[in-house]
Amino acid sequence: MHDTNHQIDMGTRRFGRWNTLGLYTLASREVQRFLAVWTQTLMAPLVTAGLFLVIFSIAIGPQRGDVMGVPYTHFIAPGLLMMTVIQNAFANTSSSIVISKVQGNIVDTLMPPLSPLEMVIGYLAGGVARGAFVAVAIWLGLALVLGIGLAHPFYALAFIVIGASLVGAIGIVAGIFANKFDQMAAITNFIITPLAFLSGTFYSVESLPKGLYEVTHFNPFFYMIDGVRYGVLGVSDSSPALGLAVVTGTAVAISALAWWMFRTGYRLKA
């Protein structure tokens, strides 16, 4: 009788086929994870971004002059903002899953009546929220220090949210694939960091040789950084509409892969 009542009670917490209570609980857990250690997850990235901005401004800014019609310091600022979003959105989803696997409590997420899509959305909510927190904080700092506003708010918001979703989905896939912390570190160091740094954060891709210029346009991180630069400064190396389409399509594809991993239990079930 107890089990029957429990099943009926769980049913009342659904909206159609969606387990709204379970989805909210998972998303809330993912947000509370990074808020509980905000000095590490939010404050540290802000300090790092600020140091990058100061160092590049002092070392290169005076000699570099304007880039695409804006001061070099202003040019790299949106790239640093988006690069920080990329790193934090990836870290939030990937660390959550790989820590649960290493500690052996991933079953606590897999056993509740959550569909694969609900699990993907729940994890992505944490990654997007962390990325958005960092983005807003950095932008406020840039507005105060450099006087940078928002030339195209819609594009800035769209690229930050969809870009964080894309990288968060990559984090889910990486977290499911990795069984140890050193495997996770290898993915971060050899895939995520190079893609983020070699995407026009510190330079305009127009200055690249022909081969590298073409290769860069196959990097979705380039479109994220270029899109945020357009949203903040109003200048870009490529069409923002094309970039938004590329980022959205890639985010959907990677999220579908994450959904398949949860659905099949790939590297999750013994």
Rank of each mutant, 00 (worst) to 15 (best):
Y213E: 11
P62L: 11
S94Y: 01
I58M: 13
T248N: 00
T20V: 15
S165D: 00
A135F: 00
L150K: 01
L146R: 07
N189M: 13
S236G: 10
A89W: 01
D3Q: 14
L150C: 08
G265Y: 06
V205S: 08
S28H: 09
L144S: 12
T84C: 10
G227P: 01
M1I: 11
K101S: 09
F159W: 03
I106E: 04
W259Y: 15
A125C: 12
L26C: 02
L195M: 13
I225S: 05
V246Y: 01
L195G: 11
R263W: 10
I148Y: 01
F181Y: 15
N92I: 11
Y230P: 03
R29N: 13
V85N: 00
V228E: 04
L198P: 05
L233S: 06
L46E: 04
T216F: 04
T20R: 09
S238T: 12
T188P: 03
L208A: 08
T48V: 14
G126L: 04
S94L: 04
W38F: 13
V252N: 00
F34D: 07
N189V: 13
M224Q: 08
V120K: 06
G126E: 06
L233M: 07
N179A: 10
E118M: 05
Y230R: 02
A91I: 05
N105Q: 10
F190S: 13
N179F: 06
I121T: 12
L195A: 15
M119K: 15
P194D: 06
N92E: 15
I187K: 06
A44N: 11
L142H: 09
V246A: 03
I138K: 03
G65D: 08
I76M: 06
T201V: 15
L166D: 00
F218H: 14
F34G: 12
D182C: 03
P116H: 02
L150V: 02
V232S: 04
A137T: 01
V161C: 01
I172R: 05
V70S: 12
T73L: 12
G249L: 02
Y24N: 14
M111V: 15
G104Y: 02
A44G: 03
T201H: 07
G227Y: 00
M184L: 15
T264C: 07
T93R: 07
G265S: 11
A186W: 07
A253F: 09
A91F: 07
N5E: 14
I170W: 07
F154E: 00
H6S: 14
N179L: 11
I60E: 10
L144K: 10
F190G: 10
A251F: 02
L51W: 08
F190P: 08
I121N: 04
G127F: 01
V107H: 14
G147P: 07
T193K: 05
I55T: 13
G127N: 01
M10S: 14
I55S: 11
A49D: 05
T264F: 05
Y230D: 04
A241G: 05
F181H: 13
V235F: 02
G79N: 06
N105C: 07
V136I: 15
P78Y: 01
S207L: 13
F177G: 12
S57Q: 08
R33H: 11
F56K: 09
T84L: 06
G65S: 09
G234I: 01
D226V: 00
F75Q: 06
S239N: 11
